[in-house]
Design a protein around this nucleic acid. Structure first.
Lengths: 202, 202
DNA sequence: GTCTATATTTAGATAGAC
DNA sequence: GTCTATCTAAATATAGAC
């Protein structure tokens, strides 16, 4: 089918394979998805898949390599926000946006599993997570300076925890139920400066 | 090695196999763990493993079947607590207790993955989760009645969300760092009755 | 009940023609 | 670059002796 070495077309094909793979990995899992299935879904052969990707693990990584630019754009969008707390809430909401989609939920779980066994994959996702963490931490520090966020909190650690809460949002996913209210209330309650006593001591 | 049909001994052996399996599944994952590895770790043969468990999936389920009694005991322990909010915090802390252990974290991820593909496993863990959810929901309702928890909250949904936050604790796990402070602060901030305005509107 | 040995199946990866 | 055909390895599950 190649008319010539058309770089546009081959890049598109590589992408199509990655997308098909992502869908299957998300629903069936990494090990339970065969390369043959991916090839069929992409309308090609296993040999072609291996022509574009060195091995099955690389195919999985490809799904996440597209996330870095998205994360950078997101962070950039809120970097100069006047009010840090609403900016944080909006960033978290964006991050949790796909949580209702069961495929996204499945893919997160799959990622968490594979990341322990694939150092290259770890590097890919760490870079993305790091971008988001720094974006959040910066906003948190500004919120503290403004007095809108509890000064007891440590920005980097707090950012990490908020990312974990976003992940929880995916785990808690159920179709037809938006997790955003819980997420926003959780973040607000966590960040808010504390009053005299937390509760009567137990 | 059998002196007779000693029911004590065979029950213990079944248990030992399940424990060995749990360790391996947690660190290496379900598919990447062979029954041969489990057998070796338990000091026996694959045939013996299949004598005790109908198949590999049953072996995985066995790991979680032991959780139900534990959950029931936990709920029972706090059912009659005088102060609901501290009781909730303590329950959550207990649930998050293993979060520092990387094996527990790995096992949670593995569970989330398998539960989509094994209805019997789903039934097992749903029963356990349901017990905890009801225990929490009851305490939340009492806290609302006492005025210590925001009356806007719906007990069952709130309980579910708190369980998700506990899961977040496992995802956020890193050795040497206890997740309990974040967890407690999150729960407290989430449950607390709200003041006049949450924040200046964005 | 426990083992050794093996049947069976499946999937990742490659060879080599076109 | 793309295919068909296949090699190779591994793992679940079972057979059957002890």
């Amino acid at each position: 089918m190649p008319r010539r070495a058309d770089p546009q077309r081959i890049a598109r094909k590589k992408d199509e394979i990655a997308v098909a793979a992502g869908r299957l990995f998300a629903t069936n899992g990494f090990e339970r998805t065969s390369v043959a299935q991916v090839a069929a879904a992409a309308g090609t052969s296993t040999a072609s898949v291996f022509y574009y990707f060195s091995d099955k693990a690389a195919l999985f990584r490809a799904v996440f390599e597209r996330d870095l630019p998205t994360a950078e754009a997101l962070v950039g969008r809120y970097a100069d926000a006047e009010a840090p707390v609403p900016a944080i809430l909006d960033m978290l909401s964006q991050l949790a946006e796909d949580a209702a989609d069961p495929a996204a939920s499945g893919m997160l779980v799959e990622l968490l599993r594979r990341v322990d066994h694939d150092p290259e994959l770890l590097a890919v996702v760490m870079r993305t997570a790091e971008v988001i963490r720094e974006g959040l931490a910066t906003l948190i520090a500004r919120g503290i300076a403004d007095g809108d966020i509890d000064a007891e909190l440590e920005p980097a650690g707090t950012a990490t925890w908020l990312q974990a809460v976003v992940d929880a949002t995916y785990l808690n996913a159920s179709p037809g139920h938006s997790p955003l209210p819980e997420l926003r209330r959780t973040a607000l309650g966590y960040l808010a400066p504390r009053w005299k006593e937390e509760t009567k001591t137990p």
